[in-house]
């Protein structure tokens, strides 16, 4: 457990640094699609939601998990679609 925890912290720290490097060079023209695209990625919590909703953890876990699945799905599906719609409008003549 403790080893796993340290490993996950390590992953977290590296990912934060990677995130800073990745985003730093994004031009301001793309700030809105970047935000909504990143927002869709934060819907990754859907993985946890699916496990809570579908595992046999009791009524409360199932209900809360299902609500979480709903909200995370809206976040994911809506976020990616709307980002795609926006990016489709960025054209060069």
């Amino acid at each position: 457990m403790d080893n796993l925890f340290v490993l996950l912290i390590f992953v977290l720290v590296l990912a934060i640094f990677l995130g800073f490097e990745l985003i730093n060079k994004v031009p301001s023209t793309l700030h809105t699609p970047l935000m909504s695209g990143a927002n869709a990625i934060s819907g990754i919590t859907i993985v946890g939601a699916l496990i809570s909703s579908g595992s046999d953890g009791g009524l409360w876990t199932t209900l809360l998990g299902t609500a979480a699945v709903f909200f995370a799905t809206v976040n994911v599906v809506g976020g990616y679609l709307v980002t795609n719609r926006m990016l489709g409008m960025f054209k060069k003549k």
Partner: peptide, 29 residues
Amino acid sequence: LAASAAGFVINNNVLIVAGALVGASGLIL
């Protein structure tokens, strides 16, 4: 960051990585 925290709840690396990327991008903006 909330998604990252949820990653620690269920010990899942993809939540931690994806959440951290979003956390970093939001902070930069």
